[in-house]
Simulated assay, not measured.
Amino acid sequence: MNIKTLFFGITTDFAGASELQIVVEENISIKDFKYVLKERFNQLENVNTYAIAVNEAYATDDVIIKTGDVVAVIPPVSGG
């Protein structure tokens, strides 16, 4: 299935775009999706932590991505 994936901050540089369609197997978990991302964009290994959101809600590793979901890759944010 194709997953609309949005990238923010430094992850946009790693992906080379702010939005991509990523092909994954049906009913993939967030944990497995992170693995797919790291395989495709190995520079994500340089980001210690990043959050994943599905349909604008933060998602844990056990959440299953479904057809039509929009996934966002959100790097750590700092500032004052």
Rank of each mutant, 00 (worst) to 15 (best):
1 M>Y: 09
2 N>L: 15
2 N>Y: 15
4 K>H: 06
6 L>G: 00
7 F>L: 03
8 F>M: 00
11 T>V: 04
13 D>F: 10
16 G>L: 05
17 A>Y: 07
17 A>V: 04
19 E>S: 08
19 E>W: 10
19 E>A: 10
20 L>W: 04
20 L>A: 00
23 V>Y: 06
24 V>H: 05
25 E>M: 09
25 E>R: 13
27 N>Y: 06
28 I>F: 14
28 I>T: 11
28 I>A: 12
28 I>C: 12
28 I>G: 11
29 S>R: 12
30 I>Y: 07
31 K>E: 15
31 K>D: 14
31 K>H: 13
32 D>Q: 09
33 F>E: 06
34 K>Y: 08
34 K>W: 05
35 Y>E: 15
38 K>M: 14
38 K>S: 14
39 E>A: 11
40 R>N: 09
42 N>H: 11
43 Q>M: 15
43 Q>H: 15
46 N>G: 14
46 N>F: 11
47 V>L: 03
47 V>K: 00
48 N>W: 05
50 Y>C: 02
51 A>W: 02
53 A>R: 02
53 A>F: 01
53 A>M: 02
54 V>G: 06
54 V>D: 05
55 N>A: 02
55 N>D: 01
56 E>A: 13
59 A>L: 05
62 D>K: 08
62 D>E: 12
65 I>L: 12
66 K>D: 07
68 G>M: 10
69 D>T: 00
69 D>S: 08
71 V>R: 09
72 A>F: 06
74 I>C: 02
76 P>F: 13
76 P>L: 14
76 P>A: 13
78 S>P: 12
78 S>K: 08
80 G>T: 11
